[in-house]
Design a protein around this nucleic acid. Sequence first.
DNA 1: CCAAAACTGGCACTCAGTGGCACTTTAGGG
DNA 2: CCCTAAAGTGCCACTGAGTGCCAGTTTTGG
Lengths: 194, 194
Amino acid sequence: MPLREAKKAAVRQALVAAANRRFHRHGFEQTTIDEICADAGVSRRTFFRYFENKEALAFPHRNERLERFLALLDGAGHSPNPVDGLRAICEIFAQEYSANRAAILAQQRLVDSVPALAAREHEIDRDWETAMAATFHRRFGRGAASERRARLMAGAAIGVIRATMRYWYEKDGKPDLARLGQEALDGLEQGFLS
Amino acid sequence: MPLREAKKAAVRQALVAAANRRFHRHGFEQTTIDEICADAGVSRRTFFRYFENKEALAFPHRNERLERFLALLDGAGHSPNPVDGLRAICEIFAQEYSANRAAILAQQRLVDSVPALAAREHEIDRDWETAMAATFHRRFGRGAASERRARLMAGAAIGVIRATMRYWYEKDGKPDLARLGQEALDGLEQGFLS
DNA sequence: CCAAAACTGGCACTCAGTGGCACTTTAGGG
DNA sequence: CCCTAAAGTGCCACTGAGTGCCAGTTTTGG
């Protein structure tokens, strides 16, 4: 890695680490950007060259996660039924989340305790939904009907996924996330007809 | 209505009206709270006694809508299948939205153009989802399994509803919203199995 | 080793949002 | 009708987020 790039990564990492410490110790609103900068040894002006705003600090992996999800979606077997692809991806993410349970739960508790962060999180969900809709649409083929179908399906998918995550968070990450995910996708596939 | 209450309603209305004019003419970020207050003939300090923040101005009916939805949900026939209730509510809201098409589309364009507003909008969706989940749960009866089912269903429902609304907005409110809604609920009921 | 490009720091500025206090208006009992 | 308590408002000062600008420093590639 070129020196310049390495330094940038280090600064970014320092900011995230400092922010996490303070957020978890004193809360999000109680932490000022100045304090984070001081801890990270960087000027406030520089902070805003790394992050759009304070909220962004709470989702440092936003872009990587999305890109990885996209790659997996595209890569996932070209089965006619796109839920099959989701099932595979579900396994991968479930494993990752379970492995980092403690950190992820802490992060989530922070997000849930700050309305502004909760709102941002939904923005992220929307990115995923859009990505999914585009992929499904590509798979379903041309046509307005197929687009609508793809978008409905993506919306429902994000809906059950988010509901599942919230359930898992609520139960302190105790349940088997992969299993919960598969059950959620069952509902997506077969519907909720009583 | 007692005098005091009437005055409060008038001030609130004046603030919303002034904000709408400015937001639509010059954009959300370009409008300062000071300007809105000047138009409405009220001090900045008072503004914050009516609205939590600038964003709240963009969703003046947030609470009424949620309460009405809740009432309808509770009131909706006690059919074993809660989607039936949603179908009825869908008709009512579809009619209201179609009747106020122009205003609602303008509002939505504003929301979509400002990330912070889009984020807040999702917060609202979550309120609806929570309400739905609680109602479904009540209808499904006690038990952890029934709660999970209720929450998955509510998540999926909000997912398809939101996707439908976005589609309708995109098409400038031209399609028959009631019909779109019923199709979305079909997907929710019967699933998306290819 | 040198110039261009990338990065950083510091300063001054705007605006959102809050706390405190004095002042005005309304409600309601005598 | 009047007078007091409560509700509502205005003003001021303050903190902190976020931005524009420019000067100084570091890295890169030739």
